[in-house]
Computed example of a mutant assay.
Amino acid sequence: MTRIKLIATDVDGTFLNQQRTYNHNRFAAQLNRLSSASIRFVVASGNHLGHLKDVFAPTPQVQTFVAENGGLIVDHNRTLAEAQLPLPVVREVVQAILADQTLRPQLLRLSGAHGTYLNRQDRSLDEASQDYFFNNLVRVDDLTQVNDTIYKINGEWPNDSIQTIAAKLNAHFPGLINATASGFGSIDIVAPHMNKAVGLTQLAATWHITPAEIAAFGDNDNDREMLAHVGLGVAMRNGTDSVKEVADLITPHDNNHEGVLDVIDTILADQG
């Protein structure tokens, strides 16, 4: 195995189990071993930064995040890079989606630097999950009037339709966006050149780490580019077929049985 210098992981469906937690003690011990082996640990997620910090609060050694599907890169509270959707594009996409019954979701959210915005009258298909994922909700009368740095548009559709809807969105706005299914009935819409692979590569370059020296874990379509791009792409046993197709390895165990932590142990053993 090529010398691994960086491990990156998706969060939901990958690092976290169905109870949205992880083995804090085991992972904290691994972080110490990773540090001793000069292997960096990075969270690469479609979620917004505040939520990710909450998730990893039990293990405060985790301080590096590729959030918003690569749109925001933060290391020890320092922003290294951000890729925003221009506000004219945001407004064009929002207006078109809401006007087209074949594309219209249950609700839309705009993930920005100062909040996650949604229309005042909209209600999530799963209010409990929305409360979990978004700790910075701001309700507004009109999404097209939001004035903030926007990293991502996020929408809720029936879970069995998200791959089809994502493809329709990309065809509808060629060169303007990158829409990708992120699981759980959710689609993330980011800048056209942006995905987790791009963001992770930008971050790794600041540490003089090449893609071949990265191991990455994921379970869904928005992890596909990242797993295909790195030296060791690891798909979860519970992951989608499209992610497994590009992976170098599939975890022996799923996210409910510490599949990521098991492979991290293997990487540490192989690195000596």
Rank of each mutant, 00 (worst) to 15 (best):
W207I: 06
E225M: 07
A166W: 08
K196C: 09
G233W: 00
M236D: 06
I187N: 03
L176C: 06
V230R: 10
A204K: 07
M194I: 13
F184R: 11
W207V: 07
Q130F: 04
N195L: 04
P192T: 13
N147I: 05
I214W: 00
H229I: 09
Q163C: 15
Q202G: 04
F134S: 00
V198Y: 12
I165L: 03
R237E: 12
S129L: 00
D126W: 11
I189V: 14
D241V: 07
Q130D: 11
E213W: 12
V146R: 01
G233S: 12
T201A: 15
I214H: 04
K196V: 03
I177H: 02
P158Q: 13
K196I: 04
A166H: 00
N159F: 14
S124V: 10
L200R: 06
A191M: 09
P158L: 10
V140H: 00
S129P: 01
V230D: 06
R139P: 00
F134Y: 10
K152H: 07
I189N: 05
L143Q: 00
N195F: 13
A215L: 10
F217I: 02
N238A: 10
D160A: 14
N170L: 04
T210V: 13
V190R: 00
M226Q: 02
L232H: 13
G155F: 01
E156V: 00
A166D: 01
Q121F: 13
L176A: 04
P211D: 05
V230Y: 14
A191H: 15
K168R: 15
T144A: 06
P211N: 07
D241R: 10
D223Y: 01
E127H: 14
I153F: 07
I187D: 03
N220T: 08
M226G: 02
K196Y: 09
F217Y: 04
A171Y: 02
D241Q: 15
Y151Q: 03
A191E: 14
P158T: 14
N178G: 09
G175V: 04
N220C: 03
D219A: 03
A197P: 05
W157L: 04
T240L: 14
N238H: 08
S186E: 10
G233T: 03
D142K: 06
K152S: 06
Q121P: 11
S124K: 07
A212K: 08
N195E: 01
V234N: 07
R237W: 02
T180L: 13
A228G: 11
E127D: 15
G185Q: 05
F133I: 12
S182N: 11
